Amino acid sequence: MIFTLLGPLEVHFDGELDLPSATKIRWTLAQLLLRANQVVDRSAIIDELWGEQPPRSALTTAQTYIYQLRKRYRARFSGPFITTRAPGYVLHADPAEIDTFVFERLTEEGGAALVAGDAVRAADRLRAALALWRGPVLSDIPAGPILTPYITHLDEIRMRALRMRTLADAHLGRYRELIPELRFLTHAHPYDEWLHEQLIVALHAVGRRADALETYQRLQRTLDRELGIAPSQPLHQLHHDVLVGVERPRSAEHLLQSMP
């Protein structure tokens, strides 16, 4: 079976979608999948599904959801799918079958390759990691207090993977390919100085110095108007270097250290 959470929750068996229709059963499944092979406390399931004022029947209802998940998927597994283990339940699954685990593994491999100076492998691993995303994490489930931190964690790892893949592609001289993506990202994150820095560097590297300077000026205006601050010293120095036509060497180690 394949479980995907980087987008709407989906469960695939032999290429066919096999997912409960009831939202709260899917919601319960999502909690167990994000902590696959670990104990998920019953109280956490109840807090997630009903918040601070659960109904008196919450425990019985949660147990019913677990029963329905066991019944639905028990024939798909040679061993147990969900077992009871105090103070809650454990969903047993191969991490290679859950996209969140695969995503984190590929991101770690890509980061390690980048640190080791293997930009080709880094770009490959990180691109594969990012390709797993089909939209916002669990976009069809109304995340509560337990799921929300997991979703935030995955979103942050995705942004780091995107930054590292940008560095790997830049190290390989793929500046022209990076420019459209970096333009989109700087518009989506108008206060992110690091992304603007990468766009300025890419534009300068392909001979578009005027566009690079305009990118800096746009960021400068945005920061001043919205936050009352000026660009950081590294960006100010980069702006000066573009003005005078200087291209500074940018080692992978230095760039990694500069990442937010």
Rank of each mutant, 00 (worst) to 15 (best):
F101V: 00
L91P: 01
P80E: 15
R127G: 15
G117K: 14
D99W: 03
D140Y: 07
L130F: 04
W133C: 11
A143R: 06
R158I: 02
D99I: 09
H92L: 11
H153N: 09
P136T: 08
E108N: 00
L154T: 03
P145C: 11
Y150C: 06
I98S: 05
P80K: 10
R76A: 12
A112Q: 14
G110T: 02
L114S: 11
G117P: 12
I141W: 04
A131I: 12
D155I: 06
L162H: 04
L126S: 01
H153R: 15
D140A: 06
A116S: 13
P149Q: 09
S78G: 10
E104D: 09
A116H: 05
A96R: 14
R163G: 01
P95N: 11
L130P: 01
T84I: 04
G79E: 15
A116N: 09
A129K: 13
W133H: 15
I157W: 03
T107C: 02
H92C: 06
I146E: 10
E97K: 06
G144Y: 07
A123Q: 14
Y89F: 10
W133D: 08
P142S: 03
I98H: 03
S139D: 11
R121S: 13
D155C: 02
P145N: 10
A113N: 04
I157Q: 02
G117W: 13
T148S: 15
I151E: 08
E97R: 11
M159V: 04
L114F: 11
L130A: 02
R125A: 12
I98D: 02
E104S: 11
A161S: 07
A161C: 01
I151G: 09
L132V: 13
R158L: 02
T100H: 07
F101P: 00
A131G: 11
V120W: 10
A131T: 12
E104A: 15
P142M: 05
R76T: 02
R85C: 04
D155E: 13
L126C: 02
A129F: 14
A119D: 09
L138P: 05
L106H: 05
S139T: 08
P80C: 05
L132T: 13
G79Y: 13
M164K: 08
I146T: 11
I98R: 04
A123P: 04
F103M: 04
A122N: 03
I82F: 00
T107K: 01
A119M: 06
R134M: 06
A93C: 14
L154F: 12
T152D: 15
L138M: 08
L106P: 02
T100E: 07
R125Y: 07
H153C: 01
R105F: 00
P136Y: 08
